[in-house]
C-alpha cells in the first residue's frame, strides 16, 4: 500500500496525464465538424470516467463495510476518499463540459438528462461528505454512509444511458458504439488519455484513503495517551 502511494508514482502518473493532454492539444488532428475546440474531449471524457470509477470503488467499499461489520476498516476510509475524489472529478466533468458546450452547442448549460443526472451525481457525493461529518462514528456513520455509497453508484448507469433512453442535447456515446463513429487518429489518443487518468485517479484514492487512515490512527493514539495520563 505505502509503496503505491509514494509521491513519485503520483508525479509519474500526473505527468502521463499532462502528456496525453499535450498530445490532444498540440499533436492530435483537427476534427472535421468541430474544428479545434473538440480537443477538450481528451480532458472531459477521462474526468467523466474517473468520476464513474470513484463511484464504483465507493460502492464496492461500502458493500464491504456493511458485510464486515468492523468498527474501523480500510474499506471505510477508502469509501470516504472515493467520495472526495469522485466529487472533484464530477465537478471537473461538469466544468469542462460546459466550456466545451458554449462554442459547440451555443449554451453553457441545459437541463437535459445527461447534464442533469451528472449534476445530481455531484450533489450525491456532496451529501455523502456531509453525512460523514454530521454523524457520530461507529456504528451509525459507517452504516448510513455505506448504504448511501451503494445508492450513489445507481446514478452512474443512468448517466451513461441517459443519452440513449431520453432525447438529450448531449450526443449518444462515441466509445463502445457499434457504429464506430471515431477516426482512429482521435480514438487511440482518447483511450490512452482515459487509462492514464484512471490510473492517476486510483492513485489519488489510495493516497487519500491512506491519509484518512493515518489521521484516524493519530486520533486513536491521542485518545489513548490522554486517557492513560495522570489527569484522567
Amino acid at each position: 500500500m505505502s509503496i503505491i502511494s509514494t509521491p513519485i508514482l503520483g508525479v509519474l502518473l500526473l505527468s502521463g496525464v499532462f502528456a496525453t493532454w499535450g498530445y490532444g492539444i498540440f499533436r492530435a488532428p483537427t476534427e472535421f465538424y468541430q474544428g479545434e475546440v473538440y480537443r477538450i474531449l481528451y480532458l472531459h471524457v477521462p474526468c467523466a470516467f474517473s468520476a464513474f470509477l470513484s463511484a464504483f470503488v465507493l460502492c464496492i467499499c461500502s458493500l464491504r463495510v456493511l458485510l464486515q461489520k468492523s468498527a474501523a476498516s480500510m474499506s471505510l476510509w477508502t469509501a470516504r476518499a472515493c467520495a472526495e475524489v469522485g466529487l472533484i472529478y464530477t465537478l471537473l466533468t461538469l466544468f469542462t463540459g460546459s466550456i466545451w458546450g458554449y462554442p459547440t452547442w451555443g449554451v453553457w448549460w441545459t437541463w437535459d438528462a445527461r447534464l442533469t443526472t451528472t449534476l445530481i451525481l455531484a450533489f450525491l457525493y456532496g451529501c455523502y461528505l456531509l453525512l460523514w461529518n454530521t454523524l457520530d462514528s461507529y456504528p451509525l456513520r459507517a452504516k448510513v454512509c455505506s448504504v448511501f455509497g451503494i445508492l450513489i453508484f445507481l446514478d452512474v448507469p443512468i448517466i451513461y444511458k441517459s443519452v440513449t433512453w431520453w432525447r438529450t442535447l448531449h450526443q449518444p456515446p462515441s466509445l463502445l458504439s457499434p457504429s464506430a463513429p471515431m477516426s482512429s487518429e482521435i480514438l487511440y489518443p482518447l483511450v490512452a488519455s482515459i487509462f492514464v487518468m484512471l490510473g492517476f485517479a486510483a492513485w489519488l484514492i489510495l493516497l487519500r484513503s491512506q491519509n484518512i487512515q493515518t489521521h484516524n490512527e493519530i486520533e486513536e493514539s491521542l485518545c489513548h495517551t490522554a486517557h492513560g495520563g495522570t489527569l484522567s
Binding site: E36, R39, I40
Partner: peptide
C-alpha cells in the same frame, strides 16, 4: 469563435485543481 481561450481555460483550471 476562437477555440484557444476555451481549450486553455478548461485544461488550465483542471491542471490547477489536480496539481
Amino acid at each position: 469563435m476562437n477555440a484557444a481561450p476555451f481549450i486553455y481555460t478548461a485544461f488550465g483550471i483542471s491542471a490547477f485543481v489536480l496539481i
